[in-house]
């Protein structure tokens, strides 16, 4: 364990280099776990698909997030020239929906996760740092939120707001911050007693600096794990809401596509629902695999051994 026993480190060691090495080590640990590796691989492919969507499927004009319609080629089965995954009842290219749907999902999950993480961290920190009746009140609200299943809650909010994809995003933001608030509060209560926070107070550092240097970095691990899991969950819940009909019809969104294609399944036209459904499944699966891997790799009981 003693540092003096280690071979002398390279001469030009920098703080940046050491930090990068820590990240690289974490990535190595993650990739050495086969299921996490598969998760990363799927995410990599999905992200590539989202980023290169305009090259994989030329954007529909004027709105690329709207399904193209070709009334001359409705209900084509997979393998039809020009429509490798077939077409929908309205002549929409299923492959187009699959590809541009990944962009829709990426936007949905990135927006909702960033917004909810920020809200959750803010509310959890206030509760944990201020304490007293403010803490009590905030935590009662959190308890109420947590007692309602996420899907049902989001469904109710989205229904009240009215059917549109923007409102789905909004409703998910309203629902998904609570876990972060609870995690953050627990972390803050733990960390603010820590000796290293006392040590920072002894040297006279400000509360703000202590929050950003000591509290936030040390609270980040469980937040990051939850955020990764939510990247998957949010797409799943979002797709469910649009499946129920809370998004505009005709948009390139996997849940909408599954919903609009399901009527054809009974008549043997399975493809319009199955391919987008598969994408939802892959997306949720991949982020959950990585989230679990992250949880194991960042477990404080094992982390220090690295």
């Amino acid at each position: 364990m003693a540092v003096t026993d280690l071979p002398t480190p390279p001469k030009r060691e920098t703080a940046f280099g050491v930090r990068m090495r820590r990240w690289r080590d974490l990535l190595k640990t993650l990739l050495s776990n086969p299921t996490t590796f598969i998760g990363f691989l799927i995410i990599f492919l999905l992200l590539a698909m989202a980023i290169f969507a305009p090259f994989l499927a030329p954007p529909n004009v004027p709105d690329p997030y709207q399904m193209p319609r070709d009334w001359g080629a409705t209900r084509m089965p997979p393998g039809t020239p020009g429509f490798p995954l077939g077409t929908t009842n309205q002549g929409g290219d299923v492959l187009y929906g699959v590809i541009w749907g990944s962009r829709t999902s990426l936007q949905l999950s990135v927006i909702v996760v960033s917004v909810t993480v920020v809200i959750g961290i803010a509310i959890g920190s206030i509760a944990g740092l201020v304490g007293g009746w403010i803490d009590e009140t905030l935590m009662r609200i959190v308890d109420v939120f947590l007692s309602i299943p996420e899907l049902i809650f989001a469904l109710a909010v989205a229904a009240i707001l009215g059917p549109s994809f923007t409102n789905i995003i909004l409703s998910l933001c309203i629902v998904f911050w609570v876990k972060y608030a609870r995690i953050m509060r627990a972390q803050i209560i733990l960390i603010r007693q820590a000796d290293y926070v006392q040590a920072a107070r002894v040297i006279g550092d400000t509360k703000l600096s202590i929050f950003f240097k000591d509290m936030l970095p040390n609270a980040s691990t469980p937040i990051a794990v939850q955020a990764t899991l939510d990247m998957g969950n949010i797409v799943l819940v979002g797709a469910t809401l649009s499946f129920i009909g809370l998004a505009e019809s005709g948009i390139a969104e996997w849940g909408v596509l599954v919903s609009e294609g399901q009527a054809g399944i009974a008549s043997g036209r399975w493809w319009a629902s199955t391919f987008p459904g598969l994408m939802i499944f892959l997306w949720a699966l991949a982020f959950n695999l990585v989230g679990d891997g992250l949880r194991d790799a960042l477990d404080p009981r094992t982390e220090d051994k690295r």
């Binding site: 820590a194 000796d195 290293y196 006392q198 040590a199 920072a200 002894v202 040297i203 000591d214 040390n218």
Partner: peptide, 14 residues
């Protein structure tokens, strides 16, 4: 200034 008993807990691990 102060030096604490728990040498691990008194240094920010990050």
């Amino acid at each position: 200034q102060m030096v604490f008993q728990d040498n691990f807990a008194s240094l920010n691990p990050r």
